[in-house]
Design a protein around this nucleic acid. Structure first.
Lengths: 310, 310
DNA sequence: CTCGAGTCTTAAGTCGTGCTTAACATCCTA
DNA sequence: TAGGATGTTAAGCACGACTTAAGACTCGAG
């Protein structure tokens, strides 16, 4: 009974282990070695007097007792997170590093300018940016590996949003048809009229590819795919050479070098939404708020300002 | 943003400081030096970037920001406490030390036998016992200085019970009249008939003294107090010598050596209740549960068994 | 006014505890 | 059977919290 309270970081370790189902995975997420995690878990088991995890060939599973303790551990880390957020809020200090993950197709148009805005409004704030797919970004947010994610959501390609995350819409942009200079696509195109075209499309597992396929099928045809790649540059180049046409978000092709013709699609009108996602607790921190505001600022300028002609 | 989560023990320190209004007080309650507390608070302020406490001549006060953080800190320590309780519950280990505080007048009759019971049912459990007045016991419980308190509650002398504490009734015993062997108090006495007696009474700030005075006044007279002392032995000795009569809980005089005559008071019937008090979280721990059960066991034996004749 | 008792602070040294590296054990797969 | 996962254990290192010790400050008493 003279036992001291359990170490919060140990409980946090348990949460990570439960989330990843392996000590190694948890260790990577926490930025430590597997050895450290193993020792922490052993110590926790010693404190409890029962075994909390079951070693298996592929990672570990929590025992019943482990699950019981997990619930409490999650409460503790949640409140600790809340506390951390208010502490940052109290100081109001606009300094530190924000770890950002962005979809590649919007990093240049939004994150880069936002970083420049931040350099003047909050010079002590630094950023580290990585490009990640939306689903990976959300995982990284929950892991605590990143602080802020810029993702895109296509019509009819829903994405599950965990409740602990906070979403803000940044920009809604149309999907435009990308074709060669010589192509005869009308200025205001209708998708059903394009059923005999050849297509250049991102793979189905990418949201953009899924959205395009869904749209085509809704228009009554299966697209004749001649090029399928994740590489945006290659995609645009292929369209430019007349290999086929592509349906891409406008921002993604805004600064591509290959000469192409852009055509607006009027039926159906397809869009993708760009959103910033953070943990609720992160969103309250002045430093994160500053970056989000900067992104909004840039997006507003992009909406009203130099809209590329289609 | 690469900031690590705040240290839980630091937050616990803040809670203690807020509770005591001084670093020194908090330090004593936590069993460390003031220096340690001071350093922890400084570190916390550095983390927050604002000052949390205001140094005053007499101790410290929390600033507004400090109060904000305090709320979160309390949440964290609460959940940490919950976690600790379940951890102890998981193992079910009947080992360790339980720190007990008891009113002096029941320690011999209840705690001592309970300790002997525990020696057989849970030999790995040790106890440390101190005698404390009820109100001091409750403070010590909240502080975490003790794990279990045995207190008494007299009729019409209410005691405030914080919500985080759990009360269990152990025993209800009558207050009996204590007089010399030669006194002519009837076997079944009525208080109003005793208004001309001289009285031997604990001081008014003691619950027993307050209860006696309240009862006399309700019976329509102010007791003629000739001896006023906290010392039970002295009290009984005085009554034995015929200095006056006393109104005391039966258990308190059960093993006193001075020859006295005990008389039951039939109007009004006055009682005191003996109760064990713990924190809710403590009550869930097997080791604490074992002791509480032992106390109940002893009390049951006292009720049914060798009832001293009055 | 000075002294003393109470408070909080600061500096320096000690010590515990969590981390890393490294070597090992185990299991699953190719 | 070899190779690549995984988790474990032992040894050394490093950071951080505690203690001791000395100083600053406030208040009340003589």
């Amino acid at each position: 009974m003279a036992t001291r309270p359990p170490d919060a970081s140990r409980l946090a370790t348990l949460v990570h282990v439960a989330r990843h189902g392996s000590l190694t995975g948890a260790a990577q997420a926490m930025g430590v070695t597997t050895s450290a995690v193993s020792q922490q878990m052993s110590a926790l088991e010693a404190e409890c007097g029962v075994s909390l995890i079951e070693r298996q060939s592929r990672g570990v599973t929590l025992t019943g007792d482990g699950l019981v303790l997990l619930e409490h551990a999650e409460q503790v880390v949640r409140h600790l997170d809340e506390t951390q957020a208010t502490m940052a809020q109290l100081s109001g200090a606009l300094a530190g590093r924000v770890r950002v993950a962005s979809i590649a197709s919007a990093a240049a148009a939004l994150i880069l300018p936002a970083s420049r805005v931040l350099a003047t409004t909050a010079p002590a704030v630094t950023m580290s940016v990585s490009t990640l797919e939306p689903s990976a970004s959300l995982d990284a947010l929950i892991d605590g590996t990143i602080d802020l994610a810029l993702i895109d959501v296509y019509d009819h390609v829903p994405i599950a949003m965990p409740s602990q995350l906070l979403v803000e819409d940044v920009l809604t942009e149309p999907l435009v048809l990308v074709a060669s200079r010589e192509s005869a696509i009308p200025t205001r195109a209708t998708l059903s009229r394009l059923k005999d075209e050849r297509w250049v499309i991102p793979p189905a597992h990418a949201a953009c590819g899924a959205a395009t396929r869904h749209a085509c099928r809704s228009a009554g045809f299966e697209p004749d795919v001649v090029w399928e790649t994740d590489d945006l540059l290659l995609l645009v180049a292929a369209a430019s050479r007349g290999e086929g046409i592509a349906l891409l978000p406008r921002l993604a092709v805004a600064d591509s070098v290959a000469p192409v013709r852009l055509r607006r699609l009027v039926d159906p009108v397809l869009t993708r939404r760009l959103q910033v996602v953070t943990r609720h607790t992160t969103a309250r921190r002045p430093i994160a708020r500053a970056l989000i505001d900067a992104i909004h600022h840039v997006a507003r300028a992009a909406r009203t300002g130099h809209r590329p002609p289609v």
